[in-house]
């Protein structure tokens, strides 16, 4: 992890100085997340979006396709089969994009630490901006994680997507270690389906 290049922020952020403030404000207050539940954690999203906690107050909304989404929520354990789809969805999303790892399973394997089929550390394969701890996190924790992400976007610290681009080879190597079929020739060169 430590040998990763830190993104050089300014080169990527300052090209539109004049609109910088407005776009940051907009990106921060409008997060569309990809409705893609991977593990058991997805069950906590229903109370978070319905009337009791209602995340639309914060400008958060589900979107059905990765092309329109800004935020990928990995809700829990990821089996290697799902990881393939997640990487693909992540590649299809349009920059700037953010990832939230949700639950202990994404952090260190959680209760599936000895499973042959779930990955243990999410940030080896895709860059994670915010982790929400807990098994499973309650809606309050989810909301606080989302609020933290919003602050991070405002402070220009949510730079996972730049990191992914700059360290693409490293991520790709990690992915290939698990997903053997990614070694084949029929993969697009820089992915990006």
């Amino acid at each position: 992890m430590d040998d990763l290049k830190r993104p050089t922020l300014d080169s990527d952020f300052t090209c539109d100085m004049a609109f910088n403030k407005i776009t940051k404000w907009a990106q921060k207050n409008s997060l569309w997340l990809l409705a893609y539940g991977t593990g058991c954690g997805a069950i906590e999203l229903s109370p978070t979006m319905t009337s009791r906690y209602d995340w639309s107050r914060l400008g958060i909304r589900g979107s059905a396709t990765p092309r329109q989404a800004d935020l990928l929520l990995i809700t829990g354990y990821l089996s290697t089969k799902t990881l393939k789809r997640v990487i693909r969805s992540y590649e299809q999303m349009q920059d700037p994009k953010y990832v939230i790892g949700f639950g202990s399973c994404t952090i260190n394997g959680g209760m599936y630490y000895d499973s042959y089929n779930t990955i243990k550390q999410l940030d080896l394969y895709i860059p994670v901006d915010v982790y929400i701890n807990g098994c499973m996190p309650r809606p309050e924790a989810v909301l606080s994680g989302l609020a933290y992400l919003k602050d991070k976007i405002g402070d220009k610290k949510a730079d996972g997507w730049i990191k992914y681009k700059q360290n693409f080879e490293w991520y790709r190597e990690n992915q290939k270690k698990i997903l053997k079929s990614f070694n084949g020739d029929n993969m697009p060169d820089k992915y990006n389906w």
Binding site: T23, A26, T50, S56
Partner: peptide, 26 residues
């Protein structure tokens, strides 16, 4: 109607500005 707060009134404007500020163009 669904007993929620709902997004703030400026939400569609924010959404549109955000979408215009997206960087990738597929």
């Amino acid at each position: 109607v669904q007993n929620r707060m709902g997004p703030p009134l400026k939400q569609p404007f924010i959404d549109v500005i955000k979408l215009y500020s997206k960087r990738t163009f597929v």
